[in-house]
Write a protein that binds this DNA or RNA. Sequence first.
DNA 1: TAGATTGTTAATCGATTAACAATC
DNA 2: TAGATTGTTAATCGATTAACAATC
Lengths: 212, 212
Amino acid sequence: MARNGSYVSEAVIRRMPKYYRYLEDLEKTGVERVSSKELSQRMGLTASKIRQDFNCFGGFGQQGYGYNVSDLKKEIMKILGLDRTYNVIIVGAGNIGQALANYTGFEKEGFFIKALFDINPKLIGISIRDIMIYDLDSLEDFLAKNPIDIAVISTPKDKAQEVADRLTRNGIKGIWNFAAIDVAVPRGVIAENVHLSDSLYTLSYRIRESLE
Amino acid sequence: MARNGSYVSEAVIRRMPKYYRYLEDLEKTGVERVSSKELSQRMGLTASKIRQDFNCFGGFGQQGYGYNVSDLKKEIMKILGLDRTYNVIIVGAGNIGQALANYTGFEKEGFFIKALFDINPKLIGISIRDIMIYDLDSLEDFLAKNPIDIAVISTPKDKAQEVADRLTRNGIKGIWNFAAIDVAVPRGVIAENVHLSDSLYTLSYRIRESLE
DNA sequence: TAGATTGTTAATCGATTAACAATC
DNA sequence: TAGATTGTTAATCGATTAACAATC
């Protein structure tokens, strides 16, 4: 997807979802075209950076005109892999697992939650928005019978790596991890670690800093 | 807190919570001392970077010995502002708001949730782990009577900026925002934007990339 | 003391910014 | 055409890495 097979830096990748958000907003408010300068002012980036970022993937603009909002949005959608659907399971039906299962927003972007798994007998058998909570023991069986693209890990910290191992052994290629540990995965598997507490501690760092 | 009043880069700040996590693990498993080299192998960073990072804040190590795990952990705790407590409110008692309220882990680090706020009459008046859900109309009144340090925004996207404005007008200095929008705050107020969907889209980006 | 490992300076690398020719 | 704005190259800046003297 990168312009030639050339390397795209982490920093650029992390900015793509942000572009997507702003372009969606622009499209929703009926804006047809946007220049890198206008976008830079809205987003708090430099126009130069924006043009460089887009040109990692291709020339989406037009000299003298700028970028067509909905075309550019579609391109970024493709870049982010949002032009297809993903089947998702959630391992750990606690607070975060349930919250994610209840949230309907990800479906709009093609992420469909197919099952939850837990070890708690009180949870096994009930369902959230028609998504069944299964016994974790049946994980391997389920994965053998259903094509799943992404697994969310929302277990306690000390179970996360073990779960990740079971997932990758059974063919899962993408892990979205909410446990407070960096899960190790074999080559070819992608793990995105969320680390909510890291985010909170960055906030407390800045609050302390601002009080100095 | 930085070594002299000198600037500490975003990249360094974002790594501090990660150090904190690894040091906590080391301490828990009874490890007394660690060298930058050992830590680098565990964490997947270079030893050089680790030493540079720590030296942004002070000389915590000892030549020929390394770092004392629990001393270093305590120093990073201070750096992150975790040597005090924070009173927290959550605005938006939906999926994420409730999940955060139910989660007890943040209390161990000194973050105490004092109240939730919502506009849904079905939620107002009930409580989660003894934390009451109040009518959003009473937000200003509550803030006038209670010293609150941090507000979580877990409202729908289109209400987030308005809520942020109300919060900052009433003295809130730290905002932990889960809505899919970058909230704008006045100078002197810290906003940490979580953007879960950005994280998910980064994952789908990498999955697509790995399939090429 | 000898060995180990930090703290820190210098070198390198990569990302960001600036500039401008190309072109719509 | 003239004006605007991209795509892209070159310059700058900052972060990372390497190296090593200081020192426990």
